[in-house]
């Protein structure tokens, strides 16, 4: 038995959470996860990893097959009534009564959670999400990004201390995405603990204090964002040369570079997920120019989630074999 840290520290403690759906598919497999009070936690994982199932299990949409969930230091199964009142959920799908006007819909949410009407509070929420002008518009007449913000407003209407955002930026354009990141940061500043899911490394990197990586129903790793980026971040660059080289010039031996068999492509794999890779590639291209080696194309990208999984899984195998 582990020694319990002071209850203030963790706002959510999940132990051995398993969910097997009716058809026999196991979407969560013995998940252990602690969320700290006041943090922004990003749950990062590919399609079908079990992110939505995990959120559903905490919020009462999914009945866990086994395991325990404690929120605010109390058992969710036993004290669901008072605990749910302190938790908010923005679902992945845009699902709500689309014929309702924005203001009424948000007011309804507050009432559903048993709170007295508070028009001033609702006004503040709508203004913070730039929805005030649209308060009398039917939700169906809003754009997708606005609809998502209405769902956020609905989830915030009862002033939750713990807020789940299931892919908050899905279908939101780049500019609005920055906006939303900003709004999520503001929620944290007001003291709300935020747990969000995403497919995008950059998104986790941009917003989160800590990141958990989930795949096939298992949490592969949880760490501070910076630590994760350092461990997993990689830059990969392919430099296509105009003339083939017979061998890699000595000047590049300090970099993690390989040359293709035909001598036409240099491949760089390295960096630390914190800008080192990009800086390296810039240095390499300058050095090429200095040495009079001409190139016709550079293809550069940051490691994808899939690359990270491959790394993690291979790393795990090596550890097991060692």
């Amino acid at each position: 038995m582990t020694v319990h840290l002071p209850a203030m520290e963790n706002i959510l403690e999940i132990r051995g959470l398993t969910k097997t759906y009716k058809g026999g598919f196991t979407a969560l497999n013995g998940v252990d996860l602690d969320i700290r009070k006041g943090e922004i936690f990003a749950l990062l994982g590919p399609n079908g990893a079990g992110k939505t199932t995990l959120i559903g299990a905490v919020c009462g949409l999914v009945r866990p097959t086994s395991g325990t969930i404690q929120a605010f230091g109390e058992d969710m199964g036993r004290h669901w009534r008072r605990l749910r009142a302190r938790i908010g959920l923005v679902p992945q799908e845009l699902a709500t009564d689309m014929f309702e006007p924005v203001m009424r819909s948000v007011t309804h949410s507050r009432g559903l959670f048993g709170l007295s009407p508070d028009p001033a509070r609702i006004e503040a929420i709508l203004k913070s999400l730039s929805l005030w002008d649209k308060r009398d518009t039917q939700i169906r007449a809003l754009s997708g990004g606005m609809k998502r913000r209405v769902l956020i407003a609905k989830a915030m209407a009862h002033e939750p201390e713990l807020l789940f955002l299931d892919e908050p930026t899905a279908g939101v354009d780049v500019e609005l995405r920055r906006d939303m990141w900003q709004q999520i940061a503001e929620m944290r500043e007001r003291g709300t603990t935020v747990i969000l899911t995403t497919h995008y490394i950059e998104e986790a990197e941009e917003m989160a204090d800590r990141v958990g990586i989930i795949r096939q129903g298992e949490i592969l790793m949880v760490d501070d964002k910076d630590a994760i980026m350092k461990r997993l971040g990689r830059t990969e660059a392919h430099i296509v040369l105009t003339e083939p080289l017979s061998a890699l010039p000595d000047a590049f031996s300090n970099y993690p570079i390989t040359i293709s068999d035909d001598g036409l492509t240099l491949t760089y794999r390295g960096g630390d997920g914190a800008g080192q890779g990009k800086a390296d590639v810039a240095e390499i291209t300058k050095a090429l120019t200095r040495q009079g080696i001409d190139y016709q194309a550079i293809d550069q990208h940051e490691s994808s989630l899939e690359d990270i999984f491959v790394d993690l899984v291979e790393g795990g195998r090596q550890e097991q074999m060692a």
């Binding site: 919020c59 009462g60 949409l61 959920l89 679902p91 709500t96 009564d97 689309m98 559903l112």
Partner: peptide, 15 residues
């Protein structure tokens, strides 16, 4: 609400 998915709100509420 079951059909549209809007029932999530009722299910996650202290109701």
């Amino acid at each position: 609400p079951r059909f549209t998915g809007a029932i999530y709100e009722l299910l996650s509420a202290p109701v």
